[in-house]
Design a protein around this nucleic acid. Structure first.
Lengths: 348, 348
DNA sequence: CTGAAAGCGCTTACAG
DNA sequence: CTGAAAGCGCTTACAG
């Protein structure tokens, strides 16, 4: 058992409150220099650290934050977590991590347990549209920030990127390359990124004067397998698409591998664009053109918004929206994968 | 502010302890059925959950565990974390995640902060040999389990795999394929996996009667860049190796991409074996032969050992060592990447 | 100026 | 049988 204030007080022969004041550097404390230095020596010797539990109970703050995500084995969320920890750790906060696997039930039960634990705030990246759990957080006045996805537009502090714009840029890129039959592997209509990226895709087509073909939009979800199945369906059409814009990189990876298996050349027979720019995107051959999402920065910024709320006691529903950036690689433009060209090394 | 026991007691007109007993289903509680049901209704209506902080202070347990790893963006550790959460969550524990980036200093400061927070136990996957932080955990009698790496052989509860054996199997695989100049991208001599895998590599050579060439062992560390640089050095030798066994997959990925850049064919000109079997290993072209490390199972098992300690109050220094398994892919054997063969799909 | 007391929100051994 | 009290380990407003 770690040493307590009372034990130290007994050893020095003063009141526990005096030890506490010395440990906390209370500026208003008048005390004889001799006693002070005796106490300080003992503090060092015993490596005294106040019991965070007791401190939390008294001060009504735990110095703990929570991050709730679908799955940390998805590199997007791993990077997000790192951003949060990098923002929170220097301020003395620890971070509890919870994975929901996309289940609203698991999300709800995690939030219940985090609330019982009295974490000081929650960063939530697993929300869906009109999410009861988020409404509950609002109603309970629990400091929170939504990341990447939102629940009810504008009602919560939010950090994300402009998904409509990202999807438009991606689709316009394909259009500019000459593609006219551009398919979309879509996300769920229950998730903001799914809805907005689909909207951006349709907007780009409309602006370009291309009539959207509903059969070219297939719901794949956010996983490789869904992307693969959706792509098989698209490629079996009589009038198959020449390009695919996928709601995220994993779905695009599914498209990528199906195309390869079928012996289609990328990008000549099929161009593919993803979303997120996970590390894997740069490793595929050819590399995957994608929309960059700054996950680590999301984490840093979300933490900043959260700590602002916690420290001010206010909930200014600030929205921080990053502008998306297209990363062009070999899955849309031949030769774009310069990093991989043998020439680069041969010059040595 | 969430509702407290006292507020509920005032509303019902009983003592707070009675509410507490009803909430905790105290079997020894005698109470009129009418009062009980009034209390139960109120509990439901207010969604009362005891303040975990106050509860923790009283009961001397926080229902919080901590996982300390080098970096969660490394898929090995992400999978490990999921294993821990999957083991801990059903038992009512939350899990704090801390990344050290391999810095002993950050590890130490994380442990200090976790201790102040009174987490019930720590799972540590970032330890190095003769780690002062681990000795401190032992001395403070803080329940802990080391994973994947150990500090002082046999002194702490440990979950890992047989690294000597894994390295031997990997090296023997290369030998059996006819390779005689087999290089090793080695880990640090301060980390158990580095030492043991190097030992296994040397043992396999010795048993096969191959004289080890010290110049064929290059310290790469555990990252891609180190693997790439080490490989460049190995390949620039006059008597270059025909095969490389890397201490982990990321180093092997570095070898893989250098070989490709130099126009070497894998496995014909250079065979490569990694360690860990991260998801990326199966995605490279050709696929990376590697030693499978069951990271998710590590997490589950480590949690089990940790909870055993916490619940029993003992520290039985149990060691759970998994037998490693070689996963053969195209980076050592032509045609091993069956999953990628077009034939698979063509039959549909 | 500084020590003693109250109180954060619980749980449970104990007294009435 | 059941209510009241003690106590987990802190911090800080308050009384002496």
């Amino acid at each position: 058992m770690p040493v307590t204030l009372k034990q130290l007080a007994d050893r020095v022969g003063v009141h526990p409150s005096t030890i506490s004041r010395v440990a906390n550097n209370d500026p208003g404390l008048r005390i004889s220099p001799a006693t002070r230095s005796r106490i300080e020596a003992l503090l060092r010797e015993t490596e005294y650290r106040p019991n965070g539990i007791a401190r939390g109970l008294k001060l009504q703050q735990t110095l703990a934050l929570a991050v709730v995500i679908p799955d940390v084995t998805n590199p997007l969320f791993a990077a997000l977590f790192r951003g949060v920890e990098d923002g929170a750790s220097p301020r003395g906060y620890n971070v509890v991590l919870c994975n929901t696997d996309g289940s609203p039930d698991r999300q709800r039960s995690h939030l219940a347990s985090l609330t019982a634990r009295r974490v000081d705030g929650v960063i939530l990246a697993s929300t869906f549209l009109r999410d009861p759990s988020v409404r509950w957080l609002r109603q309970q006045r629990i400091p929170h920030v939504l990341v990447n996805r939102f629940s009810d537009d504008g009602l919560d502090p939010f950090v994300g990127s402009d998904d409509v714009m990202g999807a438009k840029v991606a689709t316009q890129h394909l259009y500019a390359l000459g593609h006219r039959r551009i398919a979309h592997l879509a996300g769920q209509p229950t998730v903001s990124t799914g809805v907005l990226r689909r909207r951006g895709y349709l907007a780009a087509l409309a602006e370009a004067g291309v009539k959207a073909d509903p059969k070219l939009v297939v719901e794949s979800g956010y996983v490789e397998d869904g992307g693969a199945r959706g792509t098989e369906r698209l490629l079996s059409m009589r009038d198959r698409p020449t390009a695919i814009f996928a709601v995220n990189d994993m779905a695009a990876v599914g498209a990528h591998s199906v195309a390869r298996r079928l012996g289609l050349r990328i990008p000549d027979d099929l161009a593919v664009v993803g979303y997120n720019n996970i590390p894997l995107a740069g490793r595929l051959i050819p590399g995957l053109t994608t929309v960059h999402v700054p996950a680590h920065e999301f984490g840093i910024m979300a933490t900043r918004l959260l700590l602002e709320q916690i420290e001010s006691g206010q909930r200014p529903a600030r929205q921080v929206v990053f502008q998306p950036q297209l990363v062009v690689r070999g899955s849309t433009v031949v030769g774009a994968d310069v990093e991989l060209a043998p020439a680069a090394l041969m010059q040595e």
